[in-house]
């Protein structure tokens, strides 16, 4: 996509606003919906990966050290990871804070 959705005029749209570029949903910043952000405490994290399994957005992955981290471009702040974490290593904090 040469233009972002916010720049497209009605004349730029394909018929029926068909998306001709497969997989371009990855360009959509669902993180913009977030009001709360997950904070991972590496002292409590046992690297079990349960947060990544439960994440409905599929945006939690282990970093180089094996600790799990959310990709905040996609994370909607739903808090499921924090709810499911066995060791309570994840805390949801307000974005405003």
């Amino acid at each position: 996509m040469t233009k972002s959705e916010g720049e497209l005029t009605w004349k730029d749209l394909e018929i029926g606003s068909i998306v001709t570029e497969p997989g371009n949903a990855s360009q959509y910043q669902t993180g913009g919906w977030r009001t709360q952000r997950p904070i991972h405490d590496t002292n409590k994290c046992i690297k079990c990966g349960l947060c990544a399994i439960f994440c409905p957005e599929g945006c939690i992955e282990p970093n180089a050290e094996g600790y799990f981290e959310p990709n905040l471009f996609y994370c909607k702040g739903c808090g499921i990871c924090a709810r499911e974490c066995w060791t309570q290593a994840i805390t949801m904090v307000e974005e405003e804070e």
């Binding site: 497209l8 749209l13 029926g16 606003s17 068909i18 949903a25 959509y28």
Partner: peptide, 15 residues
């Protein structure tokens, strides 16, 4: 191709 995708507020009016 994708038909009938969702449209956020910044494109719906143009559609």
């Amino acid at each position: 191709i994708t038909m009938g995708a969702f449209a956020p507020p910044d494109i719906y009016t143009e559609v």
